[in-house]
């Protein structure tokens, strides 16, 4: 079982250009990070391209993670999510996203994920539970699938500005709940 301390150690060794450490990090984290890519991109080959670029970025930028104050997993997931959504935005004009409602419906925690629930996870789920359920779905769709305001406005069938106001309020509520 890989612990946070193990991953921190791998990151430190990667900063020192230790290729074996990158291999260990890949073994410990690639399935999780691939899940993140797939969730956003819904396309295996694109997701693999992005995952490849993520580890190359980690190799080059491992030293920058410390300044964010993130745990290594949070940093890795953030980098992966950012790179996946960048890729998604680039292809968006020619690719539709008509199955997005299904994705929103899908966004709840699966049973296996629930089993590994962390205390942080429990907290954010409790706070998401304080939002109206469609607004919590909207936050999840934006975070997990990289939906835009325009996508959300279409799926929830409300004007764009209404969607924007909804989501901003939901985010502030979520923040206030999490910092309570």
């Amino acid at each position: 079982m890989t612990t946070i301390a193990d991953i921190e150690d791998m990151m430190a060794r990667i900063t020192l250009r230790d290729r074996d450490a990158l291999a260990s990090l890949y073994d410990a984290t690639s399935a999780k990070l691939f899940g993140v890519c797939l969730r956003v991109l819904q396309n295996r080959s694109e997701a693999e391209d992005v995952l490849h670029d993520v580890y190359v970025r980690v190799w080059q930028k491992a030293d920058t993670y410390a300044v964010t104050g993130h745990s290594p997993m949070t940093w890795l997931i953030t980098v992966t999510r950012n790179m996946s959504i960048d890729r998604l935005r680039k292809r968006r004009p020619e690719t539709g996203s008509d199955d997005a409602m299904a994705l929103v419906a899908d966004a709840g925690p699966g049973p296996e994920a629930a089993a590994i629930a962390s205390s942080e996870r429990a907290r954010i789920e409790a706070c998401m539970g304080e939002l109206e359920s469609d607004r919590a779905d909207a936050v999840r769709a934006v975070y997990l699938e990289g939906e835009t305001y325009k996508d959300l406005a279409e799926h929830f069938d409300v004007p764009l500005n209404t969607m924007r106001t909804w989501l901003r309020r939901s985010l502030m509520k979520l923040r206030d709940c999490l910092t309570r």
Partner: peptide
């Protein structure tokens, strides 16, 4: 980031 805990590996 804890929202991503729900993502399947």
């Amino acid at each position: 980031s804890p929202l991503s805990d729900a993502i399947e590996v």
